[in-house]
Computed example of a mutant assay.
Amino acid sequence: MKARNIVLIILGLLLVVLIYGPILSKGQGPKTKTNTESATIVPVIKAKNQTAQVDFEAYGQVTPYTEINVVFEVQGKLLQGDKKLKPGHSFKKGSVLYSVDQSEELYAIYARRSSFNAMLVNLMADIELDFPQELEKWKNFIRQIDDRKNLPELPSFNSDKEKRFINSRNIATEYYSIKSAETRLSKYIYRAPFDGTIVETYAEEGSYVSPATSIAKIVKTGDYEVKVPIKKEELNHFTNAQQLWFLAPNKDTVGTGKIIRTSNVVNQQTQSIDTYLSITPINGHKVYQGDFLNLSCAEKLEMQTVTLPHTAVVDNNIQILEDSLLQTVNVRNMGYKGDSLLIAGIPENAQVLCSFLQNASTETKYEAVEK
């Protein structure tokens, strides 16, 4: 009986716990956790406005200022000049680069000179009869005629009667016809118009050439210009610069430049203005046709600027950190200095983000870390 009562008491206590336990637990709210929000760390540059100079650069290629295609006005078999020429060979002014076989034309001129001499000899009797005072002049002219040399200068006429007499015998007509053939004979030889270099050859010795056929391409040694496409908005900076420099791809200064001429139209491919400059090598540097060079000039800015990386500026806007919050500030890009931008309009000592954060919240707090 006693054991039975103990069991009933235990069961009663369990029942009370099961009924009132959930009710009591609902009265106790959940424990609130306090979360400490941490600020986002961003790298910044402390703005320091300084007077600086902006560098302007453009890219161009060295081209020959004087370039000629060697062509003949006559036809025939192509012969070697003073020496056999291949691309890269140099030559001196006045040297024979190429010639065309002139044997047939040469013998034809020999024959015409001989015939002309005979015409004058047959005329001596009439000259002695009608113009005895002019006889010695014409005899002296005949003595100077050599079949293998150019005709000497035709004697001048001392009277209209003498002139009409000579012309009636076709002496002047034949004389000038032979002189024309002599001039044409000189076109069988091509002499170098300057000191230069062979760039390309299009025909070999022994081939047959026709009038206007290109034989080779030659350029004048040491006479170069640089063609540089320059942005329209930057052209005035190069035009007004006190000094222009040419730099090799490795940034070595190879020479100075001077603008020769500027195109009046925009290059449709580059949307720039084609500008042509002379180049004067310095410090022992050599310039070759086809070299790619950077054209550079510097201009001192009137406004003070802050040097920033490209990543800090987007559409002429930067972000500065003020009271742990981001502020967007509109600025002015004044130019380039190496790989950086020169920016005007930034408050002194402002903390400028090194990289512009797109879609950043103005309510998020940030912590600055100076680079």
Rank of each mutant, 00 (worst) to 15 (best):
I320H: 09
D195V: 01
V369I: 13
T364A: 07
I9T: 05
Y208F: 13
T275H: 06
S38F: 15
P211L: 10
I171S: 05
G222A: 15
K77I: 14
Y110D: 07
G284H: 08
V100C: 04
E134D: 14
A350M: 02
I259M: 05
A241I: 05
A52N: 11
N117L: 13
M303P: 10
F356W: 06
T51G: 15
D252W: 10
A298F: 12
D195K: 03
T239L: 15
Q242W: 10
H237F: 15
N359A: 12
P249H: 02
F116W: 14
P155G: 12
T221E: 15
G196E: 10
P347V: 06
L244D: 07
T36Y: 10
S114P: 05
S214R: 01
I218D: 00
N330A: 13
E302K: 14
K48D: 07
S214A: 04
N122M: 13
L247A: 05
Q53Y: 12
G290H: 12
Y59D: 14
S38Y: 14
E225D: 09
G338D: 00
K93S: 10
N49F: 02
G88M: 07
Q80E: 09
S263T: 05
K137Q: 05
G60T: 09
I259L: 08
S103E: 08
G335D: 04
S361P: 15
F91N: 11
N117R: 13
I166M: 06
R112G: 06
G257A: 11
Q268C: 04
E233C: 12
V226E: 08
N122K: 14
S99P: 02
K217C: 00
E134Q: 15
L85W: 14
L244Y: 03
S168F: 09
A360V: 10
I166T: 01
F91G: 04
N349M: 10
I320K: 06
Q28W: 03
Q50L: 08
W138F: 09
A368K: 13
N267L: 02
I171C: 03
V62T: 13
T66A: 00
T213N: 04
N267C: 02
V96C: 03
S207T: 10
K139R: 15
T307N: 09
E104S: 08
T36Q: 13
F238S: 08
E299D: 11
Y224H: 06
S272D: 12
L325C: 07
V266M: 14
D291E: 04
Q133W: 01
A298W: 07
V219A: 10
A181R: 04
S272E: 11
R169M: 14
V329S: 01
S114I: 09
L342D: 09
H237E: 12
Q133L: 07
R148W: 00
D274A: 04
Q327N: 06
